[in-house]
Structures are given as structure tokens and as C-alpha cells.
Write a protein that binds this DNA or RNA. Sequence first.
DNA 1: CATATTAGTGCGTATTACGAACTATGCAAG
DNA 2: CTTGCATAGTTCGTAATACGCACTAATATG
Lengths: 145, 145
Amino acid sequence: MPEETVATASDVLTDLLVQISFEVIAIVTRVAAEQGLSLTSARMLGILRDRTLTMAQLADYLGLERSTVSGLVDRAEKRGLVARRASAADGRSTELVITAAGQELAALAGRSVSVRIAPVVERMPADLHKSLPAILAAISPSHLS
Amino acid sequence: MPEETVATASDVLTDLLVQISFEVIAIVTRVAAEQGLSLTSARMLGILRDRTLTMAQLADYLGLERSTVSGLVDRAEKRGLVARRASAADGRSTELVITAAGQELAALAGRSVSVRIAPVVERMPADLHKSLPAILAAISPSHLS
DNA sequence: CATATTAGTGCGTATTACGAACTATGCAAG
DNA sequence: CTTGCATAGTTCGTAATACGCACTAATATG
């Protein structure tokens, strides 16, 4: 009976997951825009919040080319959100540190996103909370490096 | 004790949800790129797959300006994925229909996404499958219109 | 030491998106 | 009916984002 179309139950779930993801990203985009940030710079700030990375590492995290990240960091640095620092270990490397202002903005945006996503989190069954890390691990390719 | 920082359990969950969403969107972006589509055009195709919409309605679905959608449809139409059709009911309106080629491409991409997201779906607890629609409803603002 | 390799930057280009201005159609009132 | 206003779409100029390639500087490797 479910032979007519190729659409399986898993396809439906995939679809829902994709739709939810689009909405989540839309929320983050909106919140970022309220702070005058693009989605990507907001994401960068979120990543640098608890890490110090080199340009190349940040590019890996974001899945972007280095040249793109160069410009991204340029703009953020000009706004005083991030600072470049020569690496002590490797003369070619630049280390990226978030500034106090950057921290503050990231915290603000993070709180805003939390508030808007809270209704979703509340609607999630309790054992999903435990599964989320595993789900992220299943999907994330690079973050294990 | 959990008074030191403002970071609550819910913040952690939000963070995970956002990260997962980023990865899901990254997958969709990659799959779309393989078909020579941008994320947005792929999304448009996905939406028009089971609906006929006017320009304005599509703009609502996508959360984009009408002028943006104009160009989006231009390019898709030039590639024969979508067709514009004058509305019978309203002389100002244009109706958008996906073509056979568009259907095919959307199906192909959809299958590809399904395959890549399958491991994630499998890792989700069973009762989440039932919750996904409610979660989407909790997060989606416009689709109820 | 000669030669890769790696880190980062600086082009030029394409795409995506926005907002404002404009056209055309439809909808009210008076 | 015609004057005025709202709505549907398009066009245009502009800004941001991202790419690939070429380039410099520093570091490995033979």
C-alpha cells in the first residue's frame, strides 16, 4: 500500500526537521539583524564565545573559505567585537579573540534567541533533551577534529 | 548554586537546537549546490512542490521581500523549473506553478537530503517523531495564515 | 638549502537581498 | 463614473556575502 509513492515515514520526518531548522535559523537571523549583525557574524561570535581560534580553524567551523572569513573578521574587528592577535607558536597564524563588547553582544543575542525558542524547547519530550547531543554528533562532520 | 552565571539548562538546549539547525541547513545547502541551486531556490521548489502560490504568498512563506522573490522566480523560470501564470481571479496576481522538470529536481534533492539526514532521524527517540509537528507549530509564525 | 606546504590577505566577480520608485489592476465612496 | 487608495509585481540601485585565484610570509621536509 505505501508502494505508490516513494515518500516514506522517514521522508516526512526529514521534511519536518528541515522545516524546523529553517524556522530556527530564521529566528537567529532576525535576532542578529536586531543587533546589526548578519547570520554569519552572529554565528562567528557564538563560536568565539568559548574558544580562541585561528582564522583557518574558524573557517572550518563555519564551513567557509578563508578569504571569506578574512572579510568577516575585518568587519567584526572594525566594530570592536573581535581582535586579531599574532600567534606565539606559529608566525603565520593569527589568533582570534572575542572582545568584551563582543561577549556582551553575543550574550544579549543568545538570551534573545533563548527566549524565542523557549516554547519549542518546552514542547520537546523530556528524553529528547538527553538525545540532542547525540543527534548533533550524528550530523556534525567537522567539529570532532 | 546555579546562580553564578545566567546560563540555564534551557540555554544549553537552545544552543544545541541552533547548532543542529545550522548543520541541517548546511546539508540542504550542499545538496542544493550539487543541483546548481541556491538554498533559497531549493526551498522555493520544496514549497511549490505541493502548492500553487502567488508571488506575494511565496514571499510570505519564504519571509522575503517581493522584489527579492521576483528575481528568484525569474532565474528559476529561465531554467524551466517554475512557470508564471496569470491569475484568473485577480488581474494583478501571478500564479506560480512548478514544472515537471522542477518536480523532478525537487524530488531528487529531497531524496538526497533524506539520505543524509537519515542517521539523525534514526537517532531521535521514537516519541519525538510524534512531537515534531507540534514543535514546528510552536515555532512557525506565518504558515497558519 | 631548495622546495613544498600552510596561514592569511587582496583582488575581481556572482549571487542574494533590501528598499524605494513605478505600473497596472482592483475596490470604495461620494 | 471618477477620484482616490490599496494591492500585486517589476525594475533599479546598493550593500553584504561568498567564491576562486593570485600573492606574500612563515614553516616543514627532502
